[in-house]
Amino acid sequence: MKRAAAVVAVAATIVLTGCAAGVDELRVTIDGVMVTAEQAATPETQREGLSGRDSVPEGTGMWFPIEPAQRTEVWMQETRVPLDVVWIREGRVTGVVTLQPCSSDPCPREASPGVVDAILEAAAGTFDNVATGAAVDVTRSTP
């Protein structure tokens, strides 16, 4: 029974994140700021995140669905550029923090400000003027 529930949960996650439809980007708008975000839908892509990149172009980022909703952490291990991290719960911003690159081992971890169901990362400064409680609008990019 538990195995069947796990299979259903994984299948639902794949469908909800767009992998089954071949869609790998989302348009995320917060307080008038739009970012085209890659999805980090697997544990591997979530672990890697934006690390190892020399830049994150303006207007781009990465979306991390968190299922089930929970307290979580991010870290900047081997990340080369400063990033804004937007914590999200039920379509609303619960916090925004700017993190600096880290090449030490271990890197400090930044805890979410409570239970979240998504994280959005973008270049530092992208969400400077976004306040807690702002609405998050997510739509699928057209291929």
Rank of each mutant, 00 (worst) to 15 (best):
A135S: 14
A69P: 10
G59A: 11
K2L: 08
D128S: 14
S103K: 07
A131H: 09
C102A: 05
V130I: 12
P82L: 02
V85I: 15
A12W: 09
T13M: 09
S55L: 08
S103Y: 11
I88Y: 02
A135L: 10
W75D: 11
E25L: 06
M62P: 02
W75V: 01
M62S: 03
A11L: 11
G61V: 07
V96G: 04
V115Y: 04
N129A: 15
N129Y: 13
W63I: 01
R71M: 11
S51C: 01
G18P: 04
A4M: 12
P65C: 07
G18V: 00
A135G: 10
A111E: 15
S103R: 10
V8N: 10
E110G: 10
G91Q: 14
V138C: 06
P113H: 03
M34Q: 15
F127K: 02
A12E: 04
I30G: 02
V7G: 07
V7I: 11
L50E: 02
D128P: 03
P106I: 13
T139W: 06
C102E: 01
V15Q: 14
S51G: 07
M1V: 10
V7Q: 06
R71V: 09
R80V: 06
A134C: 12
T139Y: 06
V130D: 05
M76A: 01
R47G: 08
V138F: 05
G95C: 04
Q100M: 15
P106M: 08
E58D: 14
C102M: 05
T94Y: 08
V115W: 03
T45W: 12
R71W: 04
V23K: 10
I88M: 01
V93C: 05
R47V: 06
S103L: 12
E25R: 14
G125S: 09
A124Y: 12
I14R: 08
A124D: 06
D117L: 02
G133A: 09
E25G: 03
V7D: 14
A11E: 01
M34W: 01
R92M: 04
R71D: 13
V96Y: 12
A20W: 15
L16M: 07
S104K: 15
V115K: 09
G22V: 13
V93Y: 05
P101H: 03
V115D: 09
T94D: 04
S141I: 11
